[in-house]
Design a protein around this nucleic acid. Structure first.
Lengths: 209, 209
DNA sequence: TTGGATAAGAAACGCAACGTATCTTAGGGG
DNA sequence: CCCCTAAGATACGTTGCGTTTCTTATCCAA
């Protein structure tokens, strides 16, 4: 089924040199990320990563204590957090850009990665916290929403509203939910629908401040 | 580690009789549900269910083709769908009752069951559809939301609004998301927050019909 | 009543993948 | 130049899925 030669995993590296420290770590994260994108979390294995990175399992376990942790680390290292806040000149434009930003990061959790990591997290409970934190990054995001809303108020697009923490978190919740239930493919239309049919109405219906 | 006697799993039944058909199936679903509640999906094993039900793995596989399918079947059989629509006399009361109803059913997916089943579903792709359908049951739910809103409009609590399919689905999405990210414990306060800070504002902000 | 078809129950297997333990050896730092 | 840290290889024990094989109880029909 697989290759005939055992060392001929997708790709091994130069067998001459022996990498160390940061260089090795980067190579492993590269390999892990590639495996995730190719096979999804369901077939993401330590053996596979080790083989592709041209190293061996103990090397992985010396750095990450479980498959879930490695997957999260790979994702985190390859999918950068975008910290600037979109400023398109309109509330709708800003929200759409923000939703798409969230979707880029959450969407990069390919093929059941969220579900898989969460499922594994019930074995290693400390992982659950880590995942939730990575997915949520709530302070950054709620601050971005608050800023977008404030600018819309200044522009006169919205009356001054009281934006609760929960309401500020909602864009993230909506997008994450969409990714989880749809299994990873969320296109522009759906994001626009979330903005137009859910979040813009929500903002318009908030209590005046 | 376990018991000394091999047959002394949590509970076996009368070794005299040999059950068949519906009776046997009910006993297996009982056992499966008990295992889920005791150990969560992460430690939900076919061996465990078979042992507790006093039967054996092939009997399970003759009925359900995978662990995920059995878990879903057990959940579905033990957690009934409530089809009537709450009618408390106020929009907020109706919504709260509806959110709690959703939470009862979703919340009965104990200990990582959603994540676990979804993760397994990437191996058996037909499962994903099944899970999504069971979680969503969108027609029933959107119809309930539409009725609640219509009654609120009749009472004068809301102006006549255009309720999109997406907006009608949102209560389910919000509650499901909360269960997934919080790992299974969602209390009354959170549901009230979702109603007061998110869904009621959303309804008030919808376009007039 | 009896004899066969059907499905239950038991035991064992192959397989995949986790996570670990042991050992050898490369190569950087004193 | 040598030594100690960590890389790389190999093999192991374990769990649990899903399957196979076989025996035997129970239902049904002639």
């Amino acid at each position: 089924m697989r290759d005939s030669t055992d060392t001929a995993h997708p790709r091994a590296t130069d067998p001459k040199t022996r990498r160390r420290g940061a260089e090795l770590e980067a190579a492993i994260l590269d390999a892990a990320w590639a495996e995730l994108r190719e096979h999804g979390y369901g077939r993401f294995t330590m053996e596979g990563v080790a083989g592709r990175a041209g190293t061996s399992k103990p090397v992985l376990y010396r750095r990450w204590s479980s498959r879930a942790e490695l997957a999260l680390a790979a994702w985190d290292s390859r999918v950068p957090v975008e910290t600037d806040v979109p400023d398109t000149g309109s509330l709708r434009g800003d929200l759409l850009a923000l939703f798409e930003r969230i979707a880029r990061r959450a969407g990069a959790m390919v093929n059941g990665m969220i579900a898989g990591v969460m499922a594994d997290a019930f074995r290693h409970p400390e992982m659950a916290e880590l995942l939730r934190e990575k997915l949520a990054r709530p302070t950054t995001l709620t601050a971005a929403v608050a800023l977008i809303v404030r600018r819309a108020v200044d522009r006169g697009e919205l009356p001054p509203v009281r934006l609760s923490h929960r309401a500020a978190r909602t864009p993230l919740d909506l997008v994450r939910n969409e990714f989880i239930t749809c299994g990873g493919s969320v296109d522009h239309d759906v994001l626009a629908e979330l903005v137009d049919e859910v979040y813009l109405p929500l903002l318009r219906g908030l209590d005046r401040d």
